[in-house]
Amino acid sequence: MQPYLATLKEARYITGDVKVLSVEINDPVAREAFKYAPGQFAFVSAFGVGESAVTFVSVPHRPGPLEFAIRRVGTVSAALHELDVGATLGVRGPYGNRFPLEDYRGKDILIIGGGIGMAPLRPVINYLLDHHDQYGNLTIINGARSPQDLAFAEEFETWAKAPRTRLELTVDRGDDVWKGRVALVPAVVEELKPSPANCVTITCGPPIMIRFVLQSLKKLGFADSQIVTTLEAKMKCGIGKCARCNVGEKYVCQDGPVFTFDQIATFLEGF
């Protein structure tokens, strides 16, 4: 459970309370050997405060540092926000399963993200964009409480312009300058009416959003097996030992965090 020492290369706010940290593992051999995939996560340490499980927002096939999107909610995330560029932090992982993106080849992909829930979806989007010839149409629905809370805004233009890609932004509450959609994410899903035929939906966001998105997708004829999500659970080890992240008999750290909703339906416990 000892992390690699790493250096904070860059830190930038992408919303009012979310910072993307670009992190490079110090030891070149470990850096080279560190292979991860979209959907996996790592523990990021702010030494002196603790460590948290955080999903990768970078994509492995693009060269560059590891990136994590950290929302300031607890003691560890607050400490990570306060680190200066050049500071030492810790990284261990990668842990968990991943989105089985190669299984989705030839399919249309619908991405539905709410708030910081866009974090695990961003590497999926960037992977799909870089391999767009292998996939069908890509639809991205990105919702947030306010225009300032829309994560990864700097990439919206690139995403919107990509071939066979549609980006739909929505906010719960607009402001003076917001000219876009003001609607809840499930309403947008029902308005766009994506076809379930040959389509996979990947969604992540607050539990309440997920619940209503699921209802909307089912109305449109999506089966549970076509809907994929990634679960968040408190965890301390990432390797099936601390016995904290289990939802029923499934350990989010090892059996997940990526699950389809037909898998989730079999869980004994709610999440």
């Binding site: 948290s52 909610v73 607890g74 560890v76 995330s77 539990p207 659970a233 408190k234 904290r244 709610g270």
Partner: peptide, 11 residues
């Protein structure tokens, strides 16, 4: 608090 995640949600 055993399963409480940052932000306060307790499963």
């Amino acid at each position: 608090g055993f399963t409480r995640i940052a932000g306060g949600y307790e499963r």
